[in-house]
Design a protein around this nucleic acid. Structure first.
Lengths: 143, 143
DNA sequence: TTAAGTGCAAAGGCTTTGCAGCATA
DNA sequence: TATGCTGCAAAGCCTTTGCACTTAA
C-alpha cells in the first residue's frame, strides 16, 4: 500500500485533506487508468461521506498541479493516472476495453519536426489507437 | 456549392431525406471540422424545423456508414468531418482553438510495428497534439 | 483565526430516447 | 403502403457550481 506522506510538498499553499490523500492513494494504486466514477466508488468504500463533487474538483486540481494526467479514451471516457516523466501512448480494444500502453521515440520525432515546420509549441500529446486485441481477435476467429 | 446527388448509393437501404442531404452538404462544405452544435446552427438557418435530435442521430449514422469521421479534440468537443482515405492528425491551439491538420508516414510506421509486436489489429488512429500556434506564440511574446 | 475545502443539491451541457405523425422508397 | 425518419419533449449522463458548514494551516 503506497502512502502519501503527510507533508504538503506536492501542493504548496493547499490543504492536504484526508479526501485528497485518499484520492491520490487510489489513483496511484489503480495501476493503470481510472475514471471519475470508479474513483468515487472506491473512495466511497473507504470514506462513505466523500462526495462526487470532491472527486471532480480534486481531479481538476491534481491535473492543474501536474500530479495526474487526464486521457480521453474511447468515445467519452476520461481516464486519470499518475503523471509520468515519459510520454506514453494508448491502445484500447473496442471489444473488451483492455488498455495497452506503449512508448516509442518515433512520436517524439514527429513532434519535433512538426514544431519546426509550423513554428508552434506542443505542450501535450495524445496518440490513441483503437482496435482489436490479440485475445479478442483469436476469440473472433474461433467463434 | 458541393451537391450530393439524389441517388442513394451512399446509404443503401436508407432514406436519403432532405435533412440528411443538408447535413452531409454542410459537413462537406465546412472544410475542416464541425461539431454537433454548430452543424445544428447552420442547418437551422436553411431548414428552421430541423431538430438537434436529427443532427445527432444522423451524425451517428454517418459514422456507422463510414461517411464521416469523428474526432475528439480538446477537453470534450466532438468534431466531425468527411471521411478521407489518408489518415491525418490534428494540432489544436489552446489559446485560439485553431486546428492544424498534418500527415506523416511515421505514424503508419508506429502502427505497423505495434500491430506486429502486440498481435493486435488497429482500426482507428488518433494522434492529437495540443499547444500554442505560431500566431498566439508571437502575440504572447509581444504582449 | 481564516482562507481553503467539503458535502449537498441544484443546475448545466451534451447526447440519447420514446412517441406519434410524416415521408421516402 | 409500410418501414424508416422526423420533431418534440423528456430523460440520462457526466460534470460543474452556489451555498453554508467544516477544517487544515
Amino acid at each position: 500500500m503506497r502512502t502519501i506522506r503527510n507533508t504538503n510538498a506536492a501542493m504548496p499553499g493547499r490543504h492536504l485533506t484526508a479526501q485528497r490523500r485518499l484520492l491520490l492513494d487510489l489513483i496511484h494504486s489503480a495501476r493503470g487508468h481510472i475514471d471519475a466514477k470508479e474513483l468515487y466508488r472506491r473512495a466511497s468504500s473507504q470514506d462513505a461521506s466523500i462526495s462526487l463533487a470532491t472527486v471532480y474538483r480534486n481531479l481538476r486540481l491534481f491535473q492543474d498541479l501536474g500530479l495526474v494526467d487526464e486521457t480521453r479514451l474511447g468515445r467519452t471516457s476520461h481516464q486519470y493516472e499518475p503523471k509520468r516523466s515519459a510520454e506514453h501512448q494508448h491502445f484500447v480494444c473496442t471489444y473488451c476495453g483492455r488498455v495497452i500502453e506503449f512508448q516509442t521515440p518515433l512520436v517524439d520525432n514527429v513532434i519535433e519536426r512538426f514544431q519546426q515546420e509550423q513554428g508552434v509549441k506542443v505542450t501535450k500529446t495524445e496518440f490513441y489507437l483503437e482496435g482489436v486485441c490479440r485475445q479478442c481477435g483469436q476469440r473472433k476467429e474461433e467463434g
